[in-house]
């Protein structure tokens, strides 16, 4: 009875506090996303002065020209590869942080690992350009050490894009895996060992299954933005850096075909939502 009264009067008291924040989110996020869906079915922007009609043509363009599907697949592959590298590099580091290091050194190193992703992402990508180009730091350093002459010019290549993106996103994987690994009770690991399991068996049967939510959360946090990335491929990939994201960027800043850009964005959004929906049961089990 008391609870029912509280919940009826609750909204009235809560509304003045909630309304400004949610109005802002509506105007700047939810209405724009809805507008994007709407515009993607138009032939022209309604404000451009030209006559417009509804059309499925923008979506037909996506499905009829193999270029777009190819690029979407290339972006998905890029997302997958970057995510895998982040697992391979980040998971062992998270394990060492959670189970090997102790006390102050753990805190300090944890902070050092997550510190870079608070610096500007664009600037960090740009800094790789100096390392990777011919006559750059990597090239010069290797030639100074090695007795024979080699040419390292990774700039404007697919590996350069992978390196830059892994560098940008690996802290997410370390962070999410660290949080789940730290929650695993050490006595579980000891119990497994004392019952005769090898280190590898304990890793496979105890540690990895228990830290799965962290792995999935990290993978989702990395995969989704990488599939939509355009700045990193542009700067480090040069001509080889054409991906789905760069094509969307082009529709808005170079070709000015906004309705097609909206359709391409919406397709990407749909793909992203499906992926998040697939990942969410695992995440919810963790919570």
């Amino acid at each position: 009875m008391a609870a029912a009264t509280a919940s009826r009067s609750g909204l009235r008291s809560a509304l003045p506090l909630l309304a400004p924040a949610y109005l802002w989110l509506t105007v700047a996020i939810f209405l724009p996303l809805s507008a994007m869906v709407f515009f993607s079915f138009m032939t022209e922007l309604p404000l451009s002065g030209k006559p417009w009609t509804f059309t499925l043509g923008n979506y037909a363009t996506f499905f009829s020209q193999s270029l777009y599907l190819t690029l979407l697949l290339a972006s998905l592959r890029l997302g997958l590869e970057v995510t895998l590298w982040c697992v391979v590099i980040g998971y062992p580091a998270a394990y060492v942080l959670a189970k090997v290091l102790k006390g102050r050194s753990r805190e300090a190193i944890f902070l050092l690992v997550i510190l870079p992703f608070w610096s500007n992402g664009l600037v960090r990508i740009f800094s790789w350009a100096m390392v990777l180009r011919e006559g750059g730091i990597l090239d010069t350093a290797l030639n100074a050490v090695l007795p024979f002459k080699i040419n390292i010019d990774l700039m404007y290549s697919y590996p350069a894009v992978i390196i830059g993106l892994v560098h940008s996103y690996v802290p997410y994987m370390v962070l999410t895996c660290y949080l789940t690994l730290q929650a695993i009770d050490d006595s579980l690991i000891e119990a497994g060992r004392s019952l005769g399991a090898s280190r590898l068996q304990v890793l496979k049967r105890v540690i990895i299954p228990l830290s799965m939510p962290g792995l999935v959360a990290g993978a989702a946090l990395i995969f989704v933005p990488v599939v939509g990335s355009f700045m990193e491929p542009r700067i480090l990939g040069g001509r080889t850096g054409t991906f789905y994201g760069t094509v969307i960027e082009d529709q808005f800043v170079a070709v000015f075909n906004w309705p097609l850009g909206a359709a391409l964005s919406f397709i990407l959004l749909a793909v992203v939502l499906v992926i998040l929906a697939v990942a969410s049961p695992v995440l919810r089990r963790a919570a």
Binding site: I29, A35, M36, P46, S265, V272
Partner: peptide
């Protein structure tokens, strides 16, 4: 739950959607 789409959706999508809507 409404707080998560702005965090989870790639900025490329949010940004282009804002451009279209604000312009419109």
């Amino acid at each position: 739950a409404l707080l998560f789409p702005p965090i989870a959706i790639p900025w490329l999508i949010t940004g282009t959607a804002m451009l279209i809507f604000f312009f419109g």
